[in-house]
Design a protein around this nucleic acid. Structure first.
Lengths: 351, 351
DNA sequence: CTGTTAGCGCCTTCAT
DNA sequence: ATGAAGGCGCTAACAG
């Protein structure tokens, strides 16, 4: 009497909850209850169902569950991951924290403005994911209205926006970090301090370079040092680009004795530029980076450490809390920075 | 007459295909046809439907589509991504190639054997993803039966197994690469050549270290050089670990004049060890790495370049081809390696 | 406690 | 060309 009609679709048989029910001689509902650990199942039937589930090699179909549950059990992460080591570190933190949850991690790498805009528009709708983590991409003004009425919880990591205070976020005080870096150089006795950064105004709205720049300016001002336009160079992010910028700066008639690079990657380019210019670091030139990525220690690079992985972890935790309904109010966590002194900074040569 | 009953679920209104149909005054089927670009729709109704879709801000629910289609429109990538820069590079290639497709990318980072086994067991079932890319994790023997009858296409990148010739894969000839590296040192005049690697036998079954080791052995043999056990050190992967291994080796009564490290990361540790031992590179010690990760150029590290990103890209292409039904037979692509000579290798000091 | 039923939103025959 | 109906696999509400 058992018609071998396990499958309907062309591809292949897949044992369903119905098969289990029939085989175990119970109703669908009961099997479902067992699967979902409902307490309203007698121990005997539970065992019987569990047995046939095992013998039939049954696995609940995730897609069907999602549709029925109205949840995707998936979290999206947006960032231009591969442009900077720091983003990967943040991703690492996210992953490590998400593994323990029931959510899958789907990756949205953003390398173009077009894709940024698409994702900003589509993801918050919530038909694809239950939650969204945005790393380092500060939304543009056009995105605000969409994000303002999110169907799903959104958490910003290392990103912010004046009109987005209603979103939970974990940020780092880059103004302070920039201040610390500059102050460190000042404390060493430097008075001619350069700053090398990304474009302060970019389509991707990275705020970190801007904030660090603010800190740089503030530290100079606080020390009564003048801000010189030619001591600030900006360009595309990257080692080579930074190297060029640094070379330009070092070719100045009156070059700086110390350079603050907006990231460790850019600091590396700066080191190369110094080398090419025949300058000893830190003897002739001090260099300080930002981020404390893994390679920084190896290079002996003085830098500002920020809690990269931790930021990802905390972002996930905030998101999961909201998802679990344990958090209604938006939370803003500020992660500290720390000056890590290594071998690329020292007092300036007595001129 | 329009009852405002857009929603049923507790959470919130979401305009469905039914709403569009009603609003446009057509049947559900027609709307579906329009969505899926079926040719069997008159131009006039198509336009009308398209209009109301736009005005209603309708977006087909992905989960429902997946269930109905029997496809998840998702691809999984498995690897211990964060343990090595090379994996991230491969991931980068995968992402860049997958972005142009209709598939989402879901990430499975493997840091423990337990998780490796779980993923190996669950993912091939195909209820979660339509395709699977496994990076650098060679399946264990227990996994073979599962992988042998995969519900979904699986592509191996930088991984292999004698019993897995039925899977498409893109690999690199690490034996040859190891040979090249060693031969380069031999050509320079070195006769005492060390090899520093991961554990040749590891629970994760990384085959690359083993293969490079083979190449190393072969090159020595071909040159009539003896293989000395004390010139081969293995340990956990990582810069610090490699540094220790290298230090041990350099502390030998008769230390090698050149060291081949199984990865650039390990080469970096070796460089540190040399530095600490007061050895100049390449004057007193030659060092060659493997991978040519981004930092290698910066460090001036001589190394064996492999096409990291390309491997990921090709892996995705193979998978998409199978998914599109354009490829039945398993394909095995072998990517070439290339010797990149920089500043860490030279002829040995005349002793 | 348990079986049955009605959706979840969409796709796809099957008639018309 | 198009509308109606059945089904994808599962959950949840409703009777017993």
């Amino acid at each position: 009497m058992v018609k071998p009609e396990l499958s309907q679709k062309s591809n292949m048989h897949s044992v369903t909850i119905r098969d289990v029910a029939r085989q175990a001689g119970v109703g669908l509902g009961t099997v479902s209850r067992v699967i979902n650990n409902s307490p309203h199942v007698s121990e005997t039937t539970r065992i019987r169902v569990l047995d046939t589930i095992r013998s039939l090699q049954y696995f609940p179909n995730p897609t069907a569950r999602r549709l029925s549950l109205g949840k995707t059990l998936t979290v999206a992460v947006m960032a231009p991951f591969f442009t900077r080591p720091a983003f990967i570190e943040r991703l690492r933190g996210i992953e490590s924290s998400l593994v323990e949850s029931e959510y899958d991690l789907i990756l949205f790498n953003i390398e173009t403005v077009k894709r940024r805009d698409e994702c900003m528009r589509d993801l918050p709708r919530g038909d694809k994911v239950d939650g969204l983590i945005i790393i380092s991409l500060s939304p543009s003004d056009e995105d605000i209205p969409i994000l303002a009425e999110p169907t799903i919880p959104i958490v910003l990591v290392d990103a912010s926006h004046p009109h987005l205070s209603f979103l939970s976020r974990v940020i780092v005080d880059d103004v302070e970090g920039g201040f610390k870096a500059t102050q460190h150089l000042i404390d060493l006795g430097h008075r001619k301090i350069g700053y090398i950064s990304d474009w302060l105004e970019s389509p991707f709205n990275f705020i970190s370079s801007r904030d660090r720049y603010q800190g740089y300016r503030q530290a100079l001002a606080a020390a009564g040092l003048p801000f010189l336009q030619e001591y600030h160079r900006q360009g595309e992010h990257g080692r080579q680009q930074a190297q060029l910028l640094a070379s330009e700066m070092l070719a100045l008639p009156d070059p700086p004795t110390a350079i603050f690079a907006a990231s460790d990657t850019q600091a590396m380019g700066t080191l190369t530029a110094a080398h090419l210019a025949g300058l000893k670091v830190p003897g002739d030139l001090s260099v300080i980076g930002y981020d404390d990525i893994e390679i920084a220690e190896y290079l002996g690079l003085t830098t500002i450490r920020q809690m990269l992985q931790e930021s990802g972890r905390r972002g996930v935790e905030l998101l999961l809390d909201i998802l679990a309904g344990e958090q209604d109010q938006p939370v803003c966590e500020i992660l500290p920075t720390e000056l890590i002194v290594r071998q690329t900074t020292a007092a300036p040569a007595t001129s």
